[in-house]
C-alpha cells in the first residue's frame, strides 16, 4: 500500500498538468490582486456609501486581509474546477495510455490501487489549498499590508486585523474539506466515465449545479441542512460576526461522511469494473 501511494505521488508530480494547475492558481491570485488594486477602492466606496453620510473613516480597508478574503472566494468555483480537472485527469490519463491495464496485470489489489489514488488526491488537495493560502498571505500582506477586514454577510461585518487573519486561516482549513469533496467526486466520476473530456464536462456540470443549488431554499430540513451543496459553504460561516462553531462542526462531520461514502462507492465500482476492456 505504501509503495502504491508513493508511486501515485511520483506520477502526480511527474505529470506536467500538476504544474500547470499550480501556475493557474498563482495566476488567478495575481489577477485578483491586480483587479482589487484597480477597482477595490471603488467597490468599498459603494459598499460604505450610506455609512459615509454619518461617519468619517479612519484607517484603510483595502488591505491584505480584504485581498486574502477575495482570493479565498476562489474556493467557490476556480479552485474546485482546477482540482476536478487535475485529480480526474490522473486516472483518465491512465485509462487513455493503457498504463492502468499494465498496473492491473501486476499482482496489485484493485481496491488498494484505487484507495491509494484517493489518499493521494486528498493529500494533494490539502497541499494545493496550503499553497493557495501561503501564496495568498505572502502576496496580499506584502503588497497591501494589514488592516481590518470588511465582509458583507447579512450586514456589514468588520473584523480586527488579527481576528481577520485567524478567520481566513480557519476558512482555508475548513474550505480544504469542501475541496476534498470535489476532488473525490471527480475521481469517482473518472472511475465511472473513464474518458477525460466526459469526466471534465460532468465534473464541471456537478460544480455548476452545486453552486446554483446553494441558494435554493428547499423548505425541507434534510435538504436544507444535510444536502452536500448546503455544506460546501461552511468556510463562509467564519465571516459571521459570531462564529457558529456547532454548525461548522456538524457540517464538517456530515461532509466528511459524504467524502467517505463517495470513496467507498468509487472503490466498489472500480473493483467490480473490467478495466481491461
Amino acid at each position: 500500500m505504501k509503495n502504491l501511494i508513493l508511486a501515485e505521488v511520483y506520477k502526480l508530480f511527474k505529470q506536467g498538468k500538476t504544474y500547470y494547475a499550480l501556475g493557474a492558481i498563482f495566476l488567478i491570485e495575481i489577477i485578483i490582486l491586480f483587479s482589487a488594486y484597480s477597482q477595490g477602492q471603488g467597490i468599498l466606496d459603494m459598499v460604505l456609501d450610506n455609512l459615509k453620510q454619518s461617519f468619517h473613516f479612519e484607517g484603510n480597508l483595502l488591505n491584505g486581509n480584504l485581498l486574502s478574503y477575495l482570493i479565498l472566494n476562489t474556493l467557490w468555483f476556480h479552485l474546485p474546477l482546477i482540482l476536478i480537472v487535475l485529480i480526474s485527469g490522473n486516472l483518465t490519463s491512465e485509462y487513455k495510455d493503457k498504463t492502468l491495464l499494465s498496473v492491473m496485470l501486476q499482482p496489485v489489489s484493485k481496491w488498494k490501487f484505487i484507495l491509494s489514488k484517493y489518499i493521494v488526491a486528498i493529500v494533494f488537495t490539502f497541499l494545493i489549498v496550503l499553497f493557495l493560502a501561503l501564496t495568498t498571505f505572502i502576496l496580499a500582506y506584502s503588497f497591501f499590508g494589514y488592516g481590518d477586514l470588511i465582509v458583507y454577510l447579512d450586514g456589514l461585518n468588520f473584523f480586527e486585523s488579527s481576528d481577520a487573519f485567524k478567520r481566513i486561516l480557519w476558512a482555508f482549513s475548513f474550505g480544504a474539506i469542501s475541496m476534498i469533496f470535489f476532488s473525490v467526486v471527480s475521481l469517482t466520476l473518472a472511475i465511472i466515465l473513464e474518458e477525460s473530456t466526459k469526466t471534465w464536462i460532468t465534473g464541471a456540470f456537478f460544480l455548476i449545479v452545486s453552486n446554483l443549488l446553494i441558494k435554493v431554499n428547499f423548505k425541507n430540513y434534510f435538504l436544507d441542512n444535510w444536502l452536500y451543496v448546503k455544506l460546501n459553504d461552511t468556510w463562509q460561516y467564519f465571516f459571521h460576526f459570531s462564529i457558529p462553531w456547532n454548525k461548522i462542526y456538524v457540517n464538517t462531520f456530515i461532509l466528511s461522511l459524504y467524502i467517505i461514502l463517495t470513496v467507498i462507492i468509487g472503490i466498489i465500482i472500480f473493483t467490480k469494473k473490467d478495466v481491461g476492456k
Binding site: 455609512l51 453620510q53 454619518s54 461617519f55 468619517h56 473613516f57 479612519e58 484607517g59 484603510n60 480597508l61 488592516g147 481590518d148 468588520f158 480586527e160 486585523s161
Partner: peptide, 9 residues
C-alpha cells in the same frame, strides 16, 4: 487611530 474606526461626523 491605528485601527479602522467609524468616526461620527
Amino acid at each position: 487611530s491605528e485601527d479602522f474606526v467609524l468616526v461620527p461626523k
